[in-house]
Design a protein around this nucleic acid. Sequence first.
RNA 1: GCGCGCGUGGCGGAACGGCAGACGCGCCGGACUUAGGAUCCGGUCCCGCAAGGGGUGGAGGUUCAACUCCUCUCGCGCGCACCA
Length: 864
Amino acid sequence: PEGYTATDILARYKRAQGFNVLHPMGWDAFGLPAEQFAIKTGQHPRQTTEANIATFKRQIQSLGFSYDWSRELATTDPDYFKWTQWIFLKLYNSYFDPELNKAQAIELLEDALSDNPKRKEEWKVNAYLIGTHDAWKNFTSEQKSFRREFVDRRRLAYVSEQPVWWCEQLGTVLANEEVVDGKSEVGGFPVVRKPMRQWMLRITAYAEKLLTDLDTIDWSDSLKEMQRNWIGRSEGAEVEFRIPNSEFRITVFTTRPDTLFGATYMVLAPEHKLVDRITTPEQREAVSKYKTEVAKKSDLERTELAKEKTGVFTGAYAINPVNGEEIPIWIADYVLASYGTGAIMAVPAHDTRDFEFATKFNLPIVQVVEPPDPKIDWRGFVGDGTSVNSTGPEISITGLPTAEAKKKINAWLESKRLGKKTINYKLRDWLFSRQRYWGEPFPIVWKRDASGNLYHEALPESALPVLPPELTDYKPTATGEPPLARAKGWVNLPDGSTRETNTMPQWAGSCWYYLRFLDAKNPRAFVGKEAESYWMGTPPNPKSEIRNPKSATPGVDLYVGGTEHAVLHLLYARFWHKVLFDLGYVSTPEPFFKLVNQGMVLGEDNQKMSKSRGNVIPVDAPVQEVGTDAFRLYEMFMGPLEMVKPWSTQGVEGVYRFLGRVWRLFVDEKSETEFEQAETTEPQKGAGLLNLIRLDSAIKDVTAISAQLKTLHACIKKVTEDLDNFRFNTAISALMVFVNDAMTWETKPVSVLRDFLILLQPFAPHLAEELWEKLNLAFSLQPLALPYAPWPKFDPALLVESEIEIPVQVNGKLRDVIKVPANADNAAVEAAAKASEKVQQFTAGKTVKKVIVVPKKLVNIVVA
RNA sequence: GCGCGCGUGGCGGAACGGCAGACGCGCCGGACUUAGGAUCCGGUCCCGCAAGGGGUGGAGGUUCAACUCCUCUCGCGCGCACCA
């Protein structure tokens, strides 16, 4: 409720300011967690999903959130996932054009192949593919399958056979992002690497944009940093090492080409393709034994237990291109097959891991970098310095600082065609298929060509939505065959083709729901052009003030959510959005302009709430005890939204008492006693008895005096400014200050109380509306609905004091507080300060060296 | 190990470089009450009768003035982690 309360307050605030506010709610209900719950309770996922939605909806509605329920959606609804499948088709039918740096329709790739000779060269298209687009129709089946493969390899959604994370207990493969410390993110089950044929999404094509565009959006630094780390950009060079008397070449990636002269050995990942080919007969046994050992280790063991380096010599040597020296090639599991080229040049003098390895296996350690400080030991020094011992027959970088050395050696490598500058990313393509029942089916069928080769083909848009088959046994299989394969009648189509039986992951639906909210019922498009550009488009809606006016990037004005989606939903959604942007379906390059992470609410014991600890506060409990308004108010009063903070039952009572004071500010206490008595004697009259409650007789339709206006306008100013900065806790404290003061008033002007209720309404809407209604009735005011009553504007003129208090310091220490006329000039203020008796006590007999007068703030007298 | 964030009363937390502790909880005292776990009034950083002194994890620095800026350091939280 914390994040939802925050957005509801802002939605109500912005609505009162006259903005057109889109504040929606929906259900992201496909995927593993929902299906796991269904299996656990032995029900069909559709049943449990519907039941859970009903429960959540009841709770959410009990909190009085002002959602536009006409836009409610569920990702499991065919009217919704039809468009999830539609977007998948767009991914399938697009490729990433590196020259234009954007996604393009796949037909353009085909056109480019036939029209642009330069492009053909780039793509390394075989000569027989050259011809006009039309000519392709007359290709032989062999040619067609070649062309198909060529195109398929470039789709943003593609099929790939490679080692993937397989989770036995969940019966499905998982994406990198869903595997945490060698276990599944859902359930914490072990996962293993297993080669499988799977659907992938080419998110790596967007690595650079996903990284650089972070600078255009207003997210927290930590969240941006998490995405940056996950994308893991690193600049370096690829260098090619020859193997003597062999055709084979080993390419390594290094961020320190300047240390090339210090490369005294090479290491290949045990899984590297060349390992078996280069291993000498004498070393064959040792190498294959090591490979088997490594294969048995889980990834967890490979990383966590890797304090001690292991590896074996392959018997082969490579030639260091800068000095022609032969260096031994080892294999070791500290080199990962999945990063860079799966091979490294080892520079033990200037890399911690290589240093450990070389020390253990007695490999030579040669200094090639001089640390900037001679006191630092060069052994294991990994920072920047000056190159030494780096002179070869053709190239020397000795004496150059690291940055220049890198530049020079890169240029040399490039001129010799031995290497080139490269950028590497940790980000891998997104594994997009799951062997589960509860997800969107792929709009894909499989066919065989004349020579019997299996190939995939997209269904036409008219075939959407592809509904999943009704299955009584929807549980996953042990073999990894998707449960959908059981529905033979569904799988096999009349024309002999078969349906794809994998389903999409739980993240698919949430990748674009914010777009569907804009136009939730549109039957013709995933979102209508007009609706999209009205809510999301450039130029930014000039009425939006949440949006940073300096940013050219519009999008969703405010997204409140937890950090748990940092490298999952929030990365995936940005990726999909960028593809849709490239293809011209949305008008912004980024989906979410401002994102605020609400901090977790801990249990009263300062621990994370969990069933096992028994410290969970169920939403219904405080709502029943103190009511929705107090609950909302406390959620916001606990502390800053972003901060982690513990729940406190006593704290809830505090804001409950505040609401009681608000009530008594408006209501005649005697009438309340009458109401309570009547309720016990005549309970059958029920709600009608509420009329017994009368407004306090001090509330009058009179002009407010200036002190009252001052109190009101100070409150307006503070609440307005705090809401603009998402500082709910201090806004509430300002409301409390107002009430504390107003309680002492002998006469309470209606106009002031009304404005106060408008300020209170976003936080405590129920109480505010009740009192608003009573005021309207009692004073026959126009019956304007409170949520649309215009937000009051504070008048600075009313806050001006004729006399102000100025603290006076002597040598920076507070000695007195003096009263001066607000319009007093600096000289007058200084004189008044010096005239103060208390001040004189500390200045007597001393020389005044300097007097600092900060207008309307403070006086500091410096004496010696 | 690297990155990000945070250290303020008994507690949650306030403070554009300008009166440290707003507001709330708790506690102490009083009023009203048969009663109070309701409500209202007053008090509440520490030492001190007071005058005054000390105080924002610790040590330095910049400044007339530092919770706020800089350097180092300690502690806590989160994230990443053999990424070449």
